[in-house]
Amino acid sequence: MKISKLLSKNKADKPVHPVTRTESLACIPEKSSAVEWSQQDNGEIIIEYPLQLKPFFISLSKRFNKGVEQKLSKKLQLDAIGSRVWLMIDGTTDVKTIIKEMAPATDLSLQEAEISVTTFLRELGRRGLILLK
């Protein structure tokens, strides 16, 4: 047996450090003020957010629009689960609470709900739709 393998620290060792994990789950997501959203009749959420373009593309857009600066935005439609999470983002509920409430609601285990919610929040953060405090 390779003892070094047994004792080696792999990437998956990260959750062993309780502080880091606790801290990340204690983060409170908050919707960005630049974002506009609406709820459809079927309960699904549509988010409209401004596109962050480089100055070159902004000037190009101005040329095509006869010098008028247009507000460029993108729309994102969330599915039922995503919409549920979005509605729970109120600036006071932490990630842990969202996971705990999502697990029974979606019939997923806590571990599965954690993967699902954190991946979703990461994606929202990447697009600048939420802030974590």
């Binding site: 003892i3 004792l7 959750p15 062993v16 606790t22 789950l25 996971i99 571990q111």
Partner: peptide, 29 residues
């Protein structure tokens, strides 16, 4: 408690998202 499979021979046990203990194992010749 949640049992997290971290590697084929590594389990982490969590209570309310906090690791409570973990075990690693392997076969020794």
């Amino acid at each position: 408690w949640e049992a997290i499979v971290s590697a084929p021979g590594h389990l982490i046990f969590e209570d309310d998202f906090n690791p409570v203990f973990h075990i690693r194992w392997s076969h020794l010749s």
